[in-house]
Design a binder for these strands. Structure first.
Lengths: 216, 216
DNA sequence: CGGTAATCTAGAACAAGTTTCAGAACTGAT
DNA sequence: ATCAGTTCTGAAACTTGTTCTAGATTACCG
């Protein structure tokens, strides 16, 4: 593995709020993201090789780097893309449970089973996400907001969440990412992940307004 | 970094099926780990360059790779080393709180402040840990067991932990790692990490035996 | 349409992780 | 002390992420 620059020196902030892309450019971007997901599905993080992504997308290497300043940027963007699909899919079938905690657990396990179908892709995306350094913060933040939105959606709250609930959601996100990693690296079974998710989701019910807090 | 005095074999059972190392070999290994930590402290993950580690440890590159089959292996081993120190240090000053949850939160925040003193080193170790693939599973597992031991120690239980408590500890570990990453990549403040840690530690009290569970 | 600036292409070049190999140095057993 | 087997060294080679450059294309503007 070559060079995984932690600190990208000349960060050419191309993406956020930049000039609108032309038709051809949008198509190129799509092609690249599609290729990225395809290669990742085949062999995970290592199988996404920048030269191959470029060639297979019909784009020069330099152009690929203009669109996505690093491999990690590319994979995080791929994750954004996939998460948006998942958000829509999940939204179509809201969870059947009653309690917010159980609803979140059910939704996350659905998401988990979806990822299970493409474990290599999941591997590439999650590894990129946790390996990302400061130069990718905005993109990682977007992924985080998407994940938060999925969880809040699943909770099915009436009003806005309380600060305590937001804390619980953050912790759930932490657990979600980390549990995913332990599963992907073969150190935890699916059953174990399920237990962890269900355990952490109890925090939702514990922090629900109107419910007596824990005994402290 | 004075390395350990005499310690029981139990602590360093990292390499299960390897032949015992000679004196010179043990010294080489320690030199390498020391160099790794030194370079990491200076510039994080990227500053730990295998050629430089080898040269600065007075060892050939091929030898470095014989001892640690990849950069990630090296950094995870470095983390094992540092965690052992931290475990001993923390054990010397047990937390002052009463409730197990609060004790764990206090201990983890102490550990966190220790890491804050060498943020680059923390960055290198944690990034390696979460980037590790299957080939590093045994070593990552050792780190996980060490972390679990630290948390269980902090809880100060009388008897053995219940399965529910073990689940809570797993979730706390997830949160710990993930919160660390968000802090290291500049996406969360120290205050935010503190809140997350304290939030997840409520799970400990919630799952304490003899306490009524949440209202579900 | 002509001109100009931005974008894209092809390919070389560079950086750092990893592998390989021939020979020197060390180890343990006879 | 000698021999066989392992370990270590030094150096080159290979891989893949990343950068750079010169020229071709394209997009936009008057």
């Amino acid at each position: 593995m070559g060079h995984m620059t932690t600190e990208s020196k000349a960060a050419k902030s191309a993406l956020p709020a930049s000039p609108p892309l032309t038709e051809r450019q949008e198509a190129r971007r799509r092609r690249i993201l599609h290729t990225s997901a395809r290669l990742a599905s085949r062999g995970g993080f290592d199988a996404v090789q920048m030269r191959e992504v470029a060639e297979s997308s019909g784009v020069a290497l330099g152009t690929l780097y203009r669109y996505f300043p690093s491999k990690v940027h590319l994979l995080v963007a791929t994750m954004q893309d996939q998460l948006q699909h998942m958000h829509e899919t999940l939204r179509k079938r809201p969870p059947s449970e009653e309690d917010p905690g159980a609803r979140v657990a059910q939704t996350l396990m659905r998401a988990f089973r979806a990822l299970q179908r493409e474990p290599h892709l999941a591997d590439a995306m999650v590894r990129a996400l946790t390996f990302a350094d400061r130069s990718v913060s905005p993109e990682v933040d977007t992924v985080s907001r998407l994940t938060t939105a999925i969880i809040l959606d699943a909770m099915g709250l009436d009003g806005p969440p309380t600060p305590e609930q937001l804390s619980a959601v953050r912790v759930i996100e932490h657990t979600w990412h980390s549990a995913l990693i332990t599963w992907l690296s073969g150190r935890a079974s699916i059953a174990q992940v399920k237990i962890d998710i269900e355990t952490v989701c109890r925090l939702i019910d514990v922090t629900a307004p109107g419910t007596a807090g824990p005994s402290r």
